[in-house]
């Protein structure tokens, strides 16, 4: 293996392709809610793309809150050693 060449996952073209596939898959899943019936228990699930929207917001919120948490809880690596 030629280690001087960047690996396949570091080539901008691959990254672009992966992102394109991810975006297409998300769009497809979102649109599938318009076409196909999805069995629901709670009325809130009826919102088109509910799971997708919730997943996206949850992850965004998770990272933002975790970053805020770092401000309060983060200490130096050797905090307990001293």
């Amino acid at each position: 293996m030629d280690s001087s060449k960047p690996g396949i996952f570091y080539q901008p073209r691959t990254i672009r392709r992966i992102l394109a596939i991810l975006h297409l898959a998300c769009a497809g899943l979102f649109l599938s809610d318009l076409i196909f019936y999805r069995h629901v228990v709670d009325p809130i699930e009826e919102i088109v793309g509910f799971y997708g929207l919730y997943g996206f917001i949850a992850c965004w919120l998770l990272v933002i809150l975790a970053k805020l948490m770092r401000r309060i809880l983060m200490r130096g690596e050797n905090y307990y050693d001293n």
Binding site: C26, L29, D33, R38, E45, F50, Y54, G55, V63
Partner: peptide, 13 residues
Amino acid sequence: VSQLQLLLFSALA
């Protein structure tokens, strides 16, 4: 579908 939506949109985020 609901699980894939949840996961792939998380990946998107």
